[in-house]
Write a protein that binds this DNA or RNA. Sequence first.
DNA 1: TTGATTGGTTTAAATTTTTAAACGATTCAT
DNA 2: ATGAATCGTTTAAAAATTTAAACCAATCAA
Lengths: 110, 110
Amino acid sequence: MANLQVLQTEFANLSDFLIALGDEKRQAIIIALLANTCDGLRVTDLTEATNLSRPAVSHHLKILKQAHLIFSRSEGTKNYYYLSHNIQEIDDLKTLLDHVTAIINASGRK
Amino acid sequence: MANLQVLQTEFANLSDFLIALGDEKRQAIIIALLANTCDGLRVTDLTEATNLSRPAVSHHLKILKQAHLIFSRSEGTKNYYYLSHNIQEIDDLKTLLDHVTAIINASGRK
DNA sequence: TTGATTGGTTTAAATTTTTAAACGATTCAT
DNA sequence: ATGAATCGTTTAAAAATTTAAACCAATCAA
């Protein structure tokens, strides 16, 4: 039924995800990871792909990880970063968008 | 087919929209507008609904307007703000999310 | 016309975000 | 062990965002 209280909660829960997706640098990281989902990419790979410094990449990876967009695997000193194959937030965001359009349509018709 | 170039364009075109949606203050404005889509809300209404100052509300309204989320109508000195009833970006964002999941699923299966 | 109301803008300050330099910890090869 | 390589962290600086105070323009009522 999507009342406004539910909507507010959905919005709040998706803030980190939306902020993570909105930044162009992080979009570049996501796209680089999308291009290589087989064995993961390391920080140095991503610095080349994005023209960012290593600490900057590391920082954005942390934000993406907190937003549950990526995860990582360690082999010795090497860390491989992947996109999560099952991103719950994608479905949650679609649900939120559906709720918004439902409310807009309902009030427009009354 | 959603290759990566297309995806990059889709991402870039939605940056403003995603950034606009990610901020909690703007979420509060959106929710206030969702609660009243009949005759619109004025800046002073929104300052009460959000506990923001008038310049802050004005600033966020500008960002929301640039993201095509809202529009306004003037009656004399009074400006009424509405949610757009037809937000193209919502459909665009859903398309983008579908492309992302399609790519993730395709590579996970290979 | 005068005074009051509404609300956008500008400037500057405060806050947050982003970045880089330096450092530290761990692993691997020799 | 020793040296090299990988990469996260911390600190501080730079950049961007957000906010408020003050100001200005336009409209309306008297």
